[in-house]
Design a protein around this nucleic acid. Structure first.
Lengths: 242, 242
DNA sequence: GAGTGGTCTAGACCACTCC
DNA sequence: GAGTGGTCTAGACCACTCT
């Protein structure tokens, strides 16, 4: 029964009867229309929410999700040396519209142990950290926290709010620690409460975690970037040779 | 209230009171224990299921999910020419245990339009397709369907059930169409009913979709592989240079 | 056959949003 | 202030699993 109501609503949405952002009928109107209990109509609406078709807003109703053309994130091209050596932001390689980023310097922090291990920090060593939140068309889509060995970057432009043309990779190159090699690890898991709040996600939505490590050509890890992506907002693309 | 019950159960699981595969208390015992209605206890159990901590089995109960060490899929190394030119399976580069694969030849099919476009097929042209299902430690983790232009591979070993050492990439090389370049696109979305059944997933679980295109060094697309991964079962890893 | 989850009913109170 | 979703109660029937 609740499946039938959900399917009927979805068909109405696909037919254009309800457009993006429109409010769907509430539990009581739906229950009356289909001759079922309110709880049953409610379950139909929750089903649509769990399928990503609609979202609920406390005290307001269920609304059709606005479609969002995913951002194409070009994993390899965006980190090519020509990109940042030329002074460009690595985001400029991505296919996205109107990216704005809120950047905040966290300063010296004690990094999570896995990250401390990758950066080969001794116990008690600190890392310099900076976090970012990317917003595209008013929608927050990515959180990132970047960690660098504090001993390496203390007092340099990397710790400034504005790191200058080409960003921290160009500055690392200035210091003689140019990133030569990257590794990205991708996992999917359910969003934590913090991530839900920061990315404006509703219900139990999956996020992509990307953990990128930048290595010099001598194999020294100089940066770890821990990212959380709204999984609906991105297509990841990796190009490589056989 | 239901949050409290869910948290109490989760704490008991973390404390080892319930091990992997153990059955959790049912609605009625839980409701009696906490002095709430059965529906409320039920919601606590459903919450744990939606968080991936437990899973429900019809008529049997809620069971603690068995932990599974994710497979590390080395996106670049596994497709290196030395890998398949040396006669190895590309899966052997992945960090996994006891991989078994069910392979079935679908034969000549009309591919989905996007894939026909990538393979530059004319209207009415067919593709040769093969599907696979990978199982690790008894758990199905990956579905894949591989498409190649039928005109290119008809009558060759590629259409056989056993494609020989190095698989279809080595055979493509034999034909003079050695893959030189790959592109992988990764998306996350909720599993369809078919995917849920084939991957043995419960509830609304996210899957990773990977669509890989293999190009010759002249830029001709010779294969498209459409994959569906159990997102809990994999860590994707991409290594590349700046 | 007993117990289980899946679904459904018919109420209820609260905090919230919107007008 | 009216309507909404979020939660809760106290029942019920069914199909299923396990013993």
């Amino acid at each position: 029964m609740y499946r039938q109501i959900a399917d009927a609503l979805k068909a109405a949405i696909d037919a254009g009867q309800y457009g993006p952002g429109d409010r769907l009928p509430g539990e009581n109107p739906l229950a009356a229309e289909h001759g079922v209990a309110a709880m049953t109509a409610r379950q139909a609406l929750r089903t649509l929410a769990s399928e990503g078709v609609a979202e609920s807003r406390k005290g307001a109703g269920f609304f059709v999700i606005a479609p969002f053309t995913p951002i194409r994130r070009r994993g390899v091209a965006r980190l090519a040396r020509e990109q940042w050596a030329g002074g460009a932001s690595i985001f400029s390689a991505d296919d996205s519209r109107d990216l704005t980023a809120e950047s905040s310097v966290l300063g010296a922090v004690t990094p999570p142990p896995e990250i401390a291990g990758v950066l080969q920090l001794e116990a008690g060593d600190h890392a310099f950290a900076r976090s970012r939140r990317h917003i595209v068309e008013g929608r927050p889509v990515l959180l990132s926290t970047s960690y660098l060995p504090l001993a390496l970057v203390e007092g340099t432009a990397i710790t400034e709010v504005d790191t200058g043309p080409g960003g921290i990779y160009a500055r690392l190159a200035d210091l003689g620690f140019a990133p030569a090699h990257f590794r990205e690890e991708i996992q999917v898991r359910m969003a934590s409460d913090d991530e839900r709040a920061a990315l404006n996600l509703s219900g139990s939505t999956p996020v992509m975690k990307i953990c990128r490590t930048a290595y010099t050509d001598e194999g020294r890890a100089v940066e770890v970037n821990d990212m959380t992506l709204d999984s609906q907002a991105y297509i990841l693309e990796y190009d490589f040779d056989a």
